[in-house]
């Protein structure tokens, strides 16, 4: 029997930064252009199975998706309280959206007592010119990386539309939580295999390395 751990993860970020789309893609493997604005908060859950050599662990990600509207910010503590990870989203093509990241970082640093790992997630890569999209980056990756480094946070880029980087993000969250040693070196095949149960392709093991 694998060890099972549950961890609370919260998604924060400005309105329209793609939080709900990220979750919907991760949980239901679909993308919709017209996801309704989140009112209150929404909860979802997914189990990640981590395999590292002989070691096997199951991490249940208990994810709270929050509303982006500033009017609902006072509700946020309910959802980030006791979180072991916070994914702060911003739209890569929207400077205002990036500016909001710092607000959430400060709020979490100030108000969350336990160790809450921070993940800064630039969303909607599909909209960027470099990926064939119509828009320019509103903030350069070096700027974000420097900011993330300062905070000891991790920076990832995703696209819910083209399903880019999403599974990896949540596997990273799960692996960090489970204390799996992550290799710094270039990817070594099968050094860390992450697979998610309860999926139709349960036997198809995806491998990745961070």
């Amino acid at each position: 029997m694998d060890e099972v751990h549950t961890t609370k993860v919260v998604l924060l970020g400005r309105t329209g930064s793609g939080k709900t789309s990220l979750i919907v893609r991760y949980i239901s493997s679909v993308f919709s252009e017209n996801v309704k604005p989140t009112i209150g908060a929404a909860f979802s859950k997914k189990t990640v199975q981590l395999i590292h050599g002989e070691e096997r662990k199951q991490v249940v990600l208990a994810i709270w998706d929050t509303a982006g509207d500033e009017r609902y910010e006072s509700m946020a503590p309910l959802y980030y309280r006791n979180s072991s990870a916070a994914i702060i989203c911003f739209d890569l093509a929207d400077r205002q959206s990036y500016n909001k990241v710092d607000f959430w970082v400060k709020e979490l640093v100030e108000k969350v007592e336990q160790n809450c790992k921070l993940y800064i997630c630039g969303t909607k890569t599909d909209l960027l010119a470099e990926y064939g999209g119509p828009l320019k980056r509103a903030v350069g990756p070096t700027e974000v990386m420097a900011y993330a480094k300062k905070l000891n946070a991790k920076f990832v880029e995703t696209s819910s539309k083209s399903n880019y980087g999403i599974d990896d993000l949540f596997k990273l969250v799960a692996a960090d939580f489970a204390g799996f040693t992550l290799c710094e070196a270039p990817p070594i095949e099968d050094s860390l295999r992450l697979q998610e149960p309860n999926q139709t392709d349960v036997n198809e093991k995806s491998s990745c390395c961070f």
């Binding site: 309105t15 329209g16 017209n34 604005p37």
Partner: peptide, 13 residues
């Protein structure tokens, strides 16, 4: 811009 963002995703189905 906030209103437009929401109008574009209100009951669009």
């Amino acid at each position: 811009s906030m209103i437009m963002k929401d109008v574009l995703r209100t009951d669009r189905s």
